[in-house]
Amino acid sequence: MEEHITSKRMSFGEAIRMAISQAMESDERVFAYGQGINDPGGFFGSTVGLSDKFSEVRCFDVPLSEDSLIGMGVGAAIQGRRPIYVALRFDFLLLMMNQIVNHAAKWPLMSGYQSTVPLTIRCIIGKDWGQAAQHSGAYHAMFAHVPGLEVVMPSSVNDAPRLLLASIQSDLPTIFVESKPLYELTGEVELPIEPSPLGQASIVREGDDITFVAISHMVEFAKGVAQDLAEKNIQAKILDLRTLSPLDEKQIITSVNRTGRVAVFDVGWQKFGLASEVSRLICMTPACRLISPLVSVGQKWEHSPGGCFREHEHYPIQQQVVTEILRLF
């Protein structure tokens, strides 16, 4: 049979919507719910039209009861449904911690692995335009610390729908972390969308001098830094982790072994986060040695300020990162 693979240019929000739509079409157990999910804006376009296509039974609006909404998702998932909860901001997941950590993550184990929790929670990290401290949180490391959860963080329009499909198909509870800057992107998406295996990093750029380990919108940032460094004849290899948990430890180690230098580009804070985990990995791997100190790029050690001038200072600035890395050579 002839395969009909086409590709279409679309926005990040459209790509996410396409993945949900395809999942709902091919599996009647999939449903989506969230606060304001059927509003005309539809989570930056990512849920627009789903209730028209699949009815409000499979895509429905809900009250502001975060903890119980996730509990409800856990219960439906235990009974074989594949719920997708959509949260407008990552910060709102802190209202759901009891159900995510104490229940979703532990239910499979507590049942002696006789029960699965195929629940997906989408959330968006806010950035820019005065998101302020309570709409900008990036808590992926907190969730990745919890056994039994998967944490997925796409960086591109092409990857996001493929990773989302894999998250929906996974039997484990999965936190699917998007970020607001990603919604500015457009790109080519291959159709039909094929799920992309979780736990596999992708090589975004080849280089022999330093390894960049990056996630989410910091992959774009890392590309900018790499370009500047290339002008100084320093070639960075960029690894887009795509999922934080499970983590592609093998590719990180293989690359660091070759380059001997590493910079970590995290969306979150620099302490107890991705850079800490990469350091742990390197330090615990026999014969894996760095020839210069690790560079950690991420949010400063405070919460994101609401005013634009302070906010500008809060996030990493490309030129400063380039200067810091050049000092290693």
Binding site: S68, G71, V74, G75, A77, I78, P83, Q99, N102, H103
Partner: peptide
């Protein structure tokens, strides 16, 4: 903890 799960 199990009350909302039962609703689900």
């Amino acid at each position: 903890g199990s009350i909302p799960i039962a609703v689900g």
